[in-house]
Write a protein that binds this DNA or RNA. Structure first.
Length: 400
DNA sequence: CGTCCACAGGAATGACGGGCGG
DNA sequence: CCGCCCGTCATTCCTGTGGACG
């Protein structure tokens, strides 16, 4: 045992792959953002009036994941902070990820926290929270930027109440000013909004197109120089990462992840170069990690649902209907001595799994024979197995 | 061309745990 | 400690519907 460990240490330590792998992490913001010069300029133009004491327009930013929306926003706000400090103008910035904090209450709580107003996790009414936020904010002359990242998840889940209140907050403030930067992945997002919110939030709109494969290559090259040891990454590897990520709607985060994981795989192997095969395996690895993490933390009934689907497909039944799936699920559930959830609830769970990309569910009308959802598993069973490992209750279904 | 299947998915409601302020 | 208000999960009841069959 110790021999093989010795060997592992030796292999990993002798392989010089990375100089600084943190530069490849998604939350790292580089000093330069290639191919986003126009967006940076536009955003800066819009926000700079803050330094002259007037309230900037609210901004709405559209773009798919990994198109640099968050990076550009943080970059510009950072520069603005620095400039503000030089001029003695205090800026408050609240950055809120609405995917994580997707209720009105939590968003307001975060806002309060950003200006050091202490509030409980829960317990107050949302209007009370809003009142406190307003009061604390208006104590002094100051400007505040509220960044609502992935704001679509907030609105879809909890409505646009907070957004509405926030867009009108300046009427109630005497000394302070607030401007909002909304970021969304969903291009049709404004359909969900109240027209009043839409117009005041979209005073200024900014679109981030997906990166092309060539642009992705530039980004990767730029990061590679500082993150990897010279000569470890060949142009072909960069090209491959860029191409794979370009297929996923030009997702730079994806491209960087691929490169990083490929590097880690190469390091583990003791290779002194990152090869194409490492990139291919990195892609599988990333997908697996995602699925495993999502499933592992799922509630029990969702797991049972997945198992049911797995069993159905193992019997060669590709594309089963809600009814069939529910029947199997019911049976399994009862065999555990559990009362099955209602079909209505299962219908929601199916939609949830669909959104997470674990299964594929499509409404199909079979005319005379009704209207249902055709459901398919879209993750390999080996990943399922991995994900259910620690759940011994459910794992037994994967034996044999 | 109307019927009618097998559900989809909206609305209302309730149980429950957490956390206030008084 | 109480009364109140949250968010989450779940149930009940409900109306709506695409299109093959007759």
């Amino acid at each position: 045992m110790s021999d093989s460990l010795d060997e592992l240490f030796k292999r990993v330590l002798s392989a010089k792959i990375f100089i600084n792998r943190d530069l490849l992490r998604p939350d790292y913001i580089p000093d330069e953002l290639p191919h986003r010069e126009r967006q940076i300029l536009r955003l800066a133009e819009t926000l700079t009036p803050i330094l002259k004491g007037s309230r900037p327009s609210n901004v709405f930013i559209y773009g798919m994941t990994g198109t640099g929306k968050t990076a550009v926003t943080k970059y510009v706000l950072n520069r603005l902070m620095i400039e503000g400090k030089k001029k003695g103008i205090p800026l408050n910035i609240a950055y809120i990820n609405c995917r994580h904090d997707d209720t009105n209450y939590r968003v307001l709580a975060d806002l309060c926290e950003a200006i050091n107003a202490k509030v409980p996790f829960t317990g107050l009414s949302t209007s009370e929270l809003f009142r406190r936020f307003l009061k604390t904010l208006d104590i002094s002359d100051r400007a505040m930027f509220v960044v609502l990242d992935e704001v679509d998840s907030l609105v879809k889940k909890s409505g646009d109440r907070v957004l509405y209140d926030l867009t009108r907050i300046n009427n109630q403030l005497i000394r302070a000013k607030v401007s909002i930067i909304g970021i969304t992945n969903d291009l049709n997002f404004t359909d969900y909004l109240d027209p009043r919110v839409r117009s005041s939030l979209g005073e200024e709109e900014l679109v981030f197109p997906p990166y092309t494969a060539v642009e992705l290559e530039d980004i990767l090259r730029q990061r590679t120089e500082k993150a990897f040891v010279n000569g470890v990454i060949s142009p072909e590897v960069i090209k491959l990462c860029a191409a794979l990520a370009a297929k996923e709607h030009g997702d730079a985060r994806r491209a960087l992840d691929l490169l990083r994981v490929a590097g880690e795989l190469a390091e583990r192997e003791g290779s002194d170069k990152v090869l194409e095969i490492h990139v291919r395996n990195a892609q599988k690895e990333l997908e697996k990690d995602r699925v495993v993490e999502v499933i592992r933390t799922m509630p029990f009934h969702s797991k049972l649902l997945i198992i049911s689907l797995y069993l159905l497909e193992k019997e060669g039944k590709r594309g089963c209907t809600t009814g069939e799936l529910y029947e199997v699920y019911s049976k399994i559930s009862k065999s555990y001595g559990l009362e099955p959830l209602t079909q209505r609830r299962i219908s929601d769970l199916i939609n949830e799994l669909d959104m997470l990309g674990i299964i594929n569910a499509k409404v199909v009308s079979k005319g005379r024979y009704g209207r249902t959802k055709v459901v398919n598993l879209i993750v390999p069973s080996s990943n399922l197995k991995e994900a259910m490992k620690e759940d011994s209750m459910v794992y037994s279904f994967f034996e044999k």
